[in-house]
Amino acid sequence: MCKKKITCNTKTSEEADEERNENKNVKTSIEKKESGESEINMNETGDTRRESSSDSCNCDSTNDNNRTHLDEASKDDVASMQDSLQEKQHQSREAITKEKPEAQKQEMLFENLKIKNIFYKPINFEMSFFACDITGSLFLADGSLILCDNANSNVILLDKSFRMLHKIHFEGNPWDVALVSTNEIIVTLKSQKSLSYVNVESGRLTEGMSISLKRVPWGIATYKDNIITTFHNNPGKGVIEIRNRHGKVLRNITVDKHGQELFASPCYVAVNQHNGDIYVTDSRKQSITCLTFEGKPLYRMESEELKWPRKVILDDQGNCLLCASLANKILLIKNKSKSPLQSKEEKSEFRVWLKKCKRPQTVSIRWEDQTMIVGLNAKNMMLVLE
């Protein structure tokens, strides 16, 4: 603490002028504070310190040090604020970057698939008497794959790298498969005229409850607690049956409101999980028909390009990827569920998605890594696109 220096009242003219200037500065500062201006003013701080310096040279030194520390502290505060702002901006950009993939992942669209590699994967598993005939396929939530080998009457479980984990043999020639829950699937058994539940757990398949039928089942899909199955006499008397999970028939879909038969040989079926719309391929009519879950026709597309249509799958917008087996192609068909019923060829509404694909019968996509498999007729291999 500095001692106050005692001086006489006699002041020089320079001292008097300096005091008047200091008083003027203090007055100006007070006016600024009253008018709402910032209280932090470097000039005011300097003037106040000069007033103290006229009293004591020791205080002069102390105040100079204080001013230096204050300047340094102010610089530190500004730097700290800048660092904090930059950190917040970085976190904000990081959050936006993280949100984008999640938003894209929710919208699963065929047009967003980026295929870079196509190859054949051998699937001639031991104990297969005939060449494999993969007619049904399904990716599970953990990335493993289910295949229906109709020729050898096997349901096969493959891991994410397409190595066999387990298979189960049926006497009924499994044709198609659908997901019931995370660890349960259901398959159509043509020769046995039945549906069979299969449990999937710890890399193994276990046969579950069976549902007996009066006719030969073909394609199958699920929607909520309902099972949708296609039937026909190969050809003729085509029908779509909707059952509950215990096998009770809830309703049949066979004709339109004019009594006209909708199907000749309905082969495969898919259901839009967002609204329940049903999509059915008909091999004899070379068509795909879309109906509401209640059975009201929304549109039909017939074309030579759809020659012998087999499996159809959907994306989140209701667009279709369809195996045109005898045309050796896979077609991408735009969703037209809000359009009037169509009966003639409209090439603008579909395009060839994959050509020179020998007899495709089923197709499935693992959306998490955009891997697609195509099951082929009478081939000991499947096509893999990734």
Results as ranks from 00 to 15, higher is better:
3 K>C: 07
3 K>I: 12
4 K>N: 08
9 N>C: 12
25 N>F: 13
25 N>V: 10
27 K>H: 10
31 E>K: 15
41 N>S: 15
53 S>R: 13
61 S>V: 15
62 T>F: 10
73 A>F: 14
81 M>W: 05
87 E>G: 02
88 K>A: 13
94 E>S: 14
95 A>D: 09
103 A>P: 03
103 A>V: 14
109 L>F: 09
115 I>L: 10
127 M>Q: 09
128 S>W: 04
131 A>R: 10
131 A>H: 09
135 T>E: 04
140 L>I: 08
140 L>P: 02
149 D>E: 01
154 N>A: 07
154 N>R: 09
155 V>A: 01
158 L>Y: 01
158 L>C: 11
159 D>F: 01
161 S>E: 14
164 M>I: 15
166 H>G: 02
187 V>D: 00
193 K>R: 15
199 N>V: 01
206 T>V: 15
214 K>S: 14
219 G>F: 01
233 N>A: 12
235 P>T: 13
236 G>T: 12
244 N>K: 08
251 R>T: 12
257 K>Y: 08
290 C>K: 13
291 L>H: 05
295 G>C: 11
306 L>D: 05
307 K>T: 07
313 I>V: 13
315 D>M: 04
316 D>G: 04
316 D>L: 05
318 G>Q: 08
329 K>W: 03
332 L>K: 05
334 K>Q: 11
340 P>N: 11
352 V>W: 03
355 K>V: 10
355 K>C: 07
362 T>V: 13
